[in-house]
Design a protein around this nucleic acid. Structure first.
Lengths: 341, 341
DNA sequence: GTGAAAGCGCTAACAC
DNA sequence: GTGTTAGCGCTTTCAC
């Protein structure tokens, strides 16, 4: 049996397609009595609008693309999982794209023309994409960037206050009486803005506490993986005067660092306290559980989607804004021990 | 400047839209001279077909859904990464859905009606979905199942020969002189078919080698995660007579098991050899690198997509078939030590 | 507030 | 082999 069309509904309700469309989309004002008639007809026929036809008529595809560097990095997959339902709720499908940190790919996707009728907008969580790359994109393509860098006239940015969050993380360690605090994850080059903001917070906390800062305790890593954390921790342990606490720029890094610590017979947090960043699910179940900065992923997702949809629907150019989502520090075993429960 | 339409091309080439459509889609035969004219016009106008319009006209959406239990499980994300480009190449977008092992969700998605014009077919990598659930689905929705269970009249199945692969894995361990071999990951309940096939191979290898099998060395786990592996390994180490090798039903499990072994001062592979399953990227970079059964993910992806597209395009009902992708054993450090390089 | 009708850009009978 | 033409189901000016 064929699906009912808008015209069927119109016929049954004794109104024109125009009216049905109005009711369905809540556009123009419709008399209550007409609305009821239409709604009854819709119910009776089990009518559901044909998305495809709507897209053709409106010239929009109803698809948005979310680009993440790595699909299997927990932080990104969790972010994705937050974004998908939000987008679906406002009528958009989510296409997922992995950039692989591959500049080529990233550039191509947002380049001119390639997106014609394929998607209406893009949510971008870049890694290793320079300001330059971003501005070279098709400015007509609505875009929201998550995470790094700040907005321009062209696009919006959604993220948490990394500097403040990092400061809190380090303050937490200081508050626990730690005095030699290391940082793992710095990336002192153009595409490492996110990392640099964390380093900034790291410094700020030291300054505020009047705590001297040993530059040799800031370890750079190419990425934010477990292996990076493990390797960095090893080099820290080789120091004459190893740290008594570590601020890791991701939970994965923290996990790697903890691995190395335990492997070397050190206790976490008794000998070395470790705090991470991202609040990935793994950290809640690992042993010890990992203290972390927890970005409000749901809020990030909501902000990003809302803002993107707004851009898509807007006829005029929209000025770029910086949206700040919430975050909180979650103290778990890796800093406070079994007090964390 | 507006995009060129098929009609523009037709006008410029001096032919009818029908002909242009034929050329674009390679449908009917077209004279070489006509084809060249059309192609020239296409090039000149920079014409690209409007996907949306095509979908409306054909009644298909050009979307397929891939459902995986967990987005952030490396095996699934790698599979996804293999599927996406293949699907794109044959003109399909991939919508990703995470079922969370949530029966509710899985059932709903493949139920009646919910997919109208949203997607043309579904590639399903189920976990915890019973045969019953599967057959309750809308039979009109083209479906290919990856991994577990075998096909029915309704859908196809793509997978590797788990029993053979598992047998090879265990043979590998036996060939290295191991005699007390454990298995981690059995799931002796209806939805654990994949696990059970591995156990079957485990038994087969023992039987073939005339090696007695200690049932207490077969450890069940709720999932295939790191933590499952670590926990299971701990219980194995508490045995009076611990194993000298372990066959893990996933690389994640192997990773967890290795973690526990190293943590307990045992050497891998000298004291205990470990082999995993899935060949996830992590296993190639961890220390030690993890020996594994490597399913040909590219082939799985190709088979699944090809078969699904075939189903989508076919007018008549298609009988379900079982497609078998290749696999190979990859010996790395966790079984052969530094001989693996 | 609602109706009539013209597309959105493509595909696919149906003819020639 | 190629042209004609009628939709696919919806949105949306334009009138009333």
């Amino acid at each position: 049996m064929k699906e009912a069309t808008l015209r069927d509904v119109a016929d049954l309700a004794g109104v024109s397609p125009r009216t049905v469309s109005n009711v369905v989309n809540g556009y123009a004002k419709v008399t209550d009595v007409t609305r009821h008639k239409v709604e009854a007809a819709i119910a009776q026929l089990g009518y559901r609008p044909n998305v495809l036809a709507r897209h053709l008529a409106t010239g929009r595809s109803g698809q948005i693309v979310v680009v993440v560097p790595y699909l299997d990095t927990p932080y990104f997959s969790e972010l994705l999982q937050a974004i998908i339902p939000v987008a679906r709720r406002v009528g958009y499908n989510v296409l997922i794209d992995q950039s692989d940190g591959d500049r080529e790919h990233e550039g191509q996707l947002i380049g001119q023309a390639s997106h014609r009728s394929l998607f209406d907008g893009i949510i971008y969580s870049p890694l290793g994409l320079s300001q330059d790359d971003l501005s070279r994109r098709d400015p007509a393509l609505p875009m929201v960037v998550i995470g790094e860098r700040t907005s321009t006239a062209n696009f919006d940015h959604v993220g948490i206050d990394d500097v403040a969050a990092s400061t809190e993380a380090v303050n937490h360690l200081i508050g626990l009486g730690r005095r030699r605090i290391a940082a793992i994850g710095d990336q002192p080059y153009p595409t490492g803005e996110a990392a640099q903001r964390r380093t900034k917070g790291f410094r700020a906390a030291h300054a505020a506490a009047g705590l001297p800062l040993d530059e040799s305790l800031i370890i750079g890593t190419p990425r934010f993986n477990r292996l990076d954390g493990a390797t960095a921790m090893e080099s820290l342990l080789r120091l004459d005067n190893p740290p008594d606490a570590v601020f890791c720029y991701s939970d994965l890094v923290a996990s790697g660092a903890i691995h190395t610590l335990l492997h070397n017979g050190l206790r976490v947090p008794e000998d070395v306290a470790v705090i991470g960043y991202d609040d990935i699910e793994d950290g809640r179940y690992s042993r010890p559980t990992i203290s972390t900065i927890s970005p409000d992923k749901a809020e990030i997702a909501r902000m990003a989607v809302e803002r993107l949809v707004m851009r898509i629907k807007s006829r005029e150019p929209v000025p770029g804004v910086d949206l700040r989502a919430g975050h909180r520090l979650v103290a778990r075993q890796s800093t406070v021990g079994d007090a964390a429960g």
